[in-house]
Every structure is written in C-alpha cells, then in structure tokens.
Amino acid sequence: MNKFTLHTGIAAPMDRANIDTDMIIPKQFLKSIKRSGFGKNLFDELRYLDEGQPDQDCVGRPLNQEFVLNQARYQGASVLLARENFGCGSSREHAPWALDDYGFRSVIAPSFAEIFYNNCFKNGLLPIVLSDEQVEQLFAETAATEGYELSVDLQRQVVVTPSGQEIAFEIDDFRKHCLLNGLDDIGLTLQHADDIRAYEEKRRQSSPWLFDAIK
C-alpha cells in the first residue's frame, strides 16, 4: 500500500451531498478481474454523456463538459473536496480503488459513510473530516482561485491552504500509523516476518514433507 505522509495537489470540488459508491463507480464495472484500471470510469455517469461499458476504450467518449473533473482548471487534481455522507451505498471496495487509480490521494468532506471510510485506509487514500464551515471555506477558495492547491500533512494532522492557514483534523492513532508507514493488513503482518520465518524453519524440521513437494 502507498504511504501517506505529506501530499500537495490541486483541489477539485464535488459540490453534491450523498455521493454514493454507485456514482463513484457504476456496477457494470465490477465484473473486472482487476483492482486497478477503474480510474477511467470514476464517476462514469456524471463524467460522460453516453452509457459506459466495461472494457470500453474511454478515449473519444462524449464528455459532459459541465462536470467538474472535465474542466481544464481541475486537470491533475489529487485532493477531492466533497459534501456530507460521501461514499454511501454499497460496500464495494472498487470505489476507493477508482479514486486512487484516477489519482486522488485524499478526500475532504464534512462526513463519510462508514464502510467507505474504512475502505479508504486499506487503500492508501486519506479521508479527512472537517466541519461544515471549514469545508465551505475550502469550496469558496477553490472556486475563487484557479490552480488552488491544498497540502495535507498527516504527521502534523493539518490541511494547509495556499495562504498558510492550517486546519487541524482528527484521525485514529493506529490508522495514522498504518498510513504513515504504508501498512495494510499485509504490511502489518510482514512486520512480523522474522516470527513467521522462525516458525517456518521449525515446521520444516518437524514436517519436511510439507516443503518443496508441490512443484
């Protein structure tokens, strides 16, 4: 999993409450055997004017020019500003996969749906909860300034605006530790690799037939 320490990037505003995971990545794309490559279908129904099909080449599909991510000024955005209850609906882990694959590293909103919030951490994406007023302020500043960038400093738990204003956020210590060190469940287990190796060596001694048999 990607580490998250300090990230600075263009902010894109999704000015709509209750964005559900089906909007983030519609169900026809779930049949894939992969967990990468969902970025081109992120917000598919909002982003394109036609109906997207799995395995379709999205280059040349008619774009909804109104949609925020299609506007020139938000190209390359990596911090998503959102409204309340972001990520509600089905538990599909494809939603954070799609956001991550598109290039987002952090989502800032007044509230998140719980499963989505959890799934973000498993995938190196940092969801940040700020107050309604703080989120409102960031929306206003983003709209006012082209190329508006936000810095997210996980170590210090602050979002830094271009003017240098620091907005503090809360995060669970354990989750912070995992993100800072790029530890998913596998990463956490691999911290005990020495224990695993030691066990394995004992096992090889006591039950050698379980090793190098299946080839």
């Binding site: 999993m1 055997i33 992969k34 990468s36 596998i186």
Partner: peptide, 19 residues
Amino acid sequence: PQAFEGLRIAGRKPWRIDA
C-alpha cells in the same frame, strides 16, 4: 484474480510458491 493483482500493485511476491 484480484489477490494476484493486489500483489502486483504492491510490488509483492508470494511468500512461498510450493505452498
């Protein structure tokens, strides 16, 4: 498939092939 894909994305290898 998604498990193998996850390994690749994270740049990991199976711990033990013969298992």
